[in-house]
């Protein structure tokens, strides 16, 4: 009797252990070695911090070894090129922005990057992209800005070719001409606007604190929807531009990946973005996690890619 009980207890214990194991690695998939996580953003910024926290969270939750690695430059195209030739067995993933696989992939035609070469895993957060100026310019609405621009060309700071195109179209729609100054990254736009090197510029969330304290103003939303922080600011569509700067941070893997691996990785990242150490950071810096996955994500990436050529046509 004792022996039977013992066996029973042992079996129960074993099944609990194995059940826990199955939960830990989702569908039961396990990487064959350490996972290389390519980060397309400069070290130390918000995006980089987010990626590294997610790596920590995944490692803590699943026990998979995740090794972050920076591959920066060319708006994420370099990271995608590095990822493209890696094995599609779940041991290599990358964090980029949707714009990398959309406008930038389309613009870098010779590089040979197309969304179908990649398996989208999940987005983690969206941008609160606004058109921002310093409050002491005295502009309380976008109309004030346009009035000032008619007096003399204003300098418009942007951080990617797509945003430069949008700034150009915005000027055209409003009948003014901006001197478009393209710099590397949102922090540089922020510094340029602060130092007076630029009059206004695109900022993707970094303006939050300044707008809250009243030193910066969100003049317009560059998204298809109003900004959370300044819901009254007009959207680009309201201002006569039919394109927008909607965008997300997104994890991708090389194309042709096995479904079990794709699901397991997606589940691990989503879990980190929603509940891990990363989730607190995402909440603070990007206003909460947005996790678009699966076929919805594939469709998003494909349509961004196709919309890019229209935008490029529009500025010719």
């Amino acid at each position: 009797m004792k022996a039977i009980l013992k066996t029973f207890a042992l079996t129960a214990a074993l099944s609990i252990v194995s059940a826990a194991g199955a939960v830990a690695d989702g569908t039961g998939w396990k990487p064959s070695g350490p996972i290389k996580m390519i980060i397309a953003f400069a070290a130390g910024g918000g995006a980089d911090t987010q990626a590294r926290l997610i790596a920590d969270d995944i490692q803590a939750a699943t026990g998979w070894e995740v090794i972050p690695e920076q591959v920066t430059g060319k708006g994420g195209v370099n990271a995608l090129l590095a990822l493209k030739d890696m094995p599609a067995d779940g041991t290599a993933i990358a964090m980029v922005v949707t714009e990398s696989l959309g406008y930038n992939a389309a613009a870098a035609g010779n590089a040979g990057i197309v969304p179908s070469d990649f398996a989208g895993l999940t987005t983690t957060a969206g941008f609160q992209m606004g058109v921002v100026a310093k409050a002491d310019k005295g502009w309380s609405s976008f109309a004030d800005t346009i009035a000032a621009a008619k007096e003399g060309n204003l300098r418009f700071g942007t951080m990617s070719p797509k945003l430069s195109d949008l700034a150009f179209l915005l000027g055209e729609a409003q009948g003014v001409e901006f001197n478009i100054v393209q710099v590397a990254g949102g922090k540089a736009v922020m510094n340029g606007v602060q130092a007076g090197d630029m009059d206004l510029g695109f900022m993707a969330g970094i303006q939050g604190k300044g707008v809250a304290s009243g030193d910066l103003v969100n003049l317009a939303s560059a998204l298809s929807e109003p900004l959370v922080q300044t819901p009254d600011a007009p959207t680009l569509a309201d201002l006569g531009v039919q394109f927008n700067a909607d965008g997300y941070f997104v994890f991708v893997a090389p194309g042709g990946m096995d479904t079990a691996a794709r699901d397991a990785l997606t589940a691990a990242i989503v879990e980190a973005a929603n509940n891990g150490k990363a989730s607190a950071m995402i909440e603070k810096a990007f206003g909460g996690a947005v996790t678009i996955q699966g076929s919805e994500l594939d469709a998003l990436l494909q349509s961004d890619y196709e919309a890019a050529s229209e935008l490029m046509q529009a500025v010719q």
Binding site: S32, G33, P34, T91
Partner: peptide
């Protein structure tokens, strides 16, 4: 069978 890659760490 899998070669060196899985053993690299």
């Amino acid at each position: 069978v899998d070669g060196y890659r899985p053993l690299r760490a």
